Computed example of a mutant assay.
Amino acid sequence: MLYGKEHVERYRATDGKEGHEWNGTTVLLLTTTGRTSGAERVNPLIYQRHGDDYIIVASYGGAPKSPDWYQNLQAHPEVEVQVMGDRFRARARTATPEEKPELWRLMTATWPQYDEYQTKTDREIPIVVLERASG
């Protein structure tokens, strides 16, 4: 099973032929800019489509704090996304309270553990909407 750095390397090398499908769901690569280092950080994340947008969850397995990639995109919302062989620029934003219930259902249908992760933490787990940049 692919995970972490190896997952990113195999995904990139094969345009997602290895790594897009993972544990019965689908994964994209999200590249953020480090909020303090300025360095690029790449994370394989479970996603779903919602219209033209890509939806990801900043669950961190239910840890008390948000994952670093989420903190990075709060500071630098311009990101790069790779889905299979398609690499594109996107703008990341946290789903609004009005959007979240529908998107949470979409994502828990894909990865039911998100409900369990939410019970492990007092923080509200954010859902992130990745909107493809035009042009």
Rank of each mutant, 00 (worst) to 15 (best):
M1E: 11
Y3K: 12
E6T: 14
H7V: 10
H7M: 04
V8R: 10
E9L: 13
R10G: 03
Y11E: 02
T14F: 04
E18G: 10
G19N: 08
G19A: 10
G19E: 10
H20R: 06
E21F: 14
E21P: 07
W22T: 04
W22N: 06
W22R: 09
G24C: 13
T25F: 07
T25G: 12
T25P: 02
T26L: 10
L28R: 00
L29I: 05
L29K: 03
T31K: 03
T31D: 03
T32I: 01
G34T: 10
R35A: 09
R35G: 07
R35P: 04
T36F: 00
S37D: 01
S37G: 03
S37A: 03
S37Q: 02
G38K: 01
G38W: 03
A39H: 12
E40W: 12
R41Y: 11
V42R: 04
V42M: 00
P44Y: 07
L45I: 15
I46Y: 01
I46M: 04
I46A: 03
Y47K: 02
Q48N: 15
R49G: 12
G51M: 11
D52I: 09
D53C: 09
Y54L: 14
V57S: 09
A58C: 07
S59F: 12
G61V: 09
A63H: 11
P64D: 11
P64M: 05
K65S: 13
S66W: 10
P67K: 04
Y70M: 05
Q71A: 13
Q71D: 12
L73V: 06
L73Q: 03
A75N: 10
H76Y: 10
V79F: 01
V79C: 02
E80D: 02
E80I: 01
V81C: 05
V81R: 00
V83T: 09
M84E: 13
G85S: 13
F88E: 04
R89G: 13
R89K: 15
A90K: 01
A92I: 01
T94P: 01
T94F: 11
A95T: 02
T96H: 05
T96W: 06
T96C: 07
T96N: 05
P97T: 06
P97W: 02
E99D: 07
K100A: 15
P101T: 13
E102F: 08
E102W: 08
L103T: 03
L103A: 02
W104G: 07
A109E: 04
A109G: 10
T110E: 11
T110F: 08
W111P: 02
W111H: 06
Q113F: 09
Y114S: 00
E116V: 15
E116W: 14
Y117N: 01
Q118H: 10
T119I: 09
T119N: 08
T119C: 05
T119A: 12
K120A: 13
T121A: 06
D122Y: 10
E124S: 14
E124Y: 10
E124R: 13
I125W: 07
P126H: 07
I127V: 14
I127S: 06
V128I: 12
V128N: 00
V129R: 05
R132G: 02
R132Y: 00
A133T: 06
